[in-house]
Amino acid sequence: MKKINIGYVLVASMVLMFSMKSNAQISKAEIRATGLTCSMCSNAINKQLKSLPEVVNVETDLNTNTFTITLKEGNELSPKVFKEKVEKAGFFIGSLVVTAKPETIAKNSYILVNDRPNNVTEIQFQVVDKGYVTEKEYKKLSKSYKNVETYASNNEDDFHIKILN
């Protein structure tokens, strides 16, 4: 009887995990990169982003250095991946806006800095941590979020997000 119970729990938790995976995902990311004005620089970022197997497509606006990334269903990417890729190309993120299923932000790695909307099928949020906004903006935000205890600690694995819709 005990064995069956364990088996049941295992199956149940696996089902739960998989269902969470498919629900908790980023479908689109929009990155504005800083520190560049030329197309060769931009191409370095473009190639870095495209090297991710989860990426379906990257569209670039070369005049604003904005990269719109479409991602495969069921991916488990976190915002950190984008930061690493842009920095590998030699640049930084000036803003990162993510479109995702509402379940995504239920993960405990996300910390909301404003209210979440009700009854939406998709949410859009901006990551406001250090390294995901320009340095000037980070200084400003540090003041406005000084009552958010975790914000100043700059933990790399949690993301402070501002819901946009």
Binding site: C38, A44, Q48, K88
Partner: peptide, 20 residues
């Protein structure tokens, strides 16, 4: 990779992209 910085005989402070 910063084309304006890709000087012919001097080197800028920026680097080749990682892995490239």
């Amino acid at each position: 990779v910063f084309s304006q910085e890709l000087f012919v005989i001097t080197d800028p402070a920026s680097n080749v992209p990682a892995n490239s």
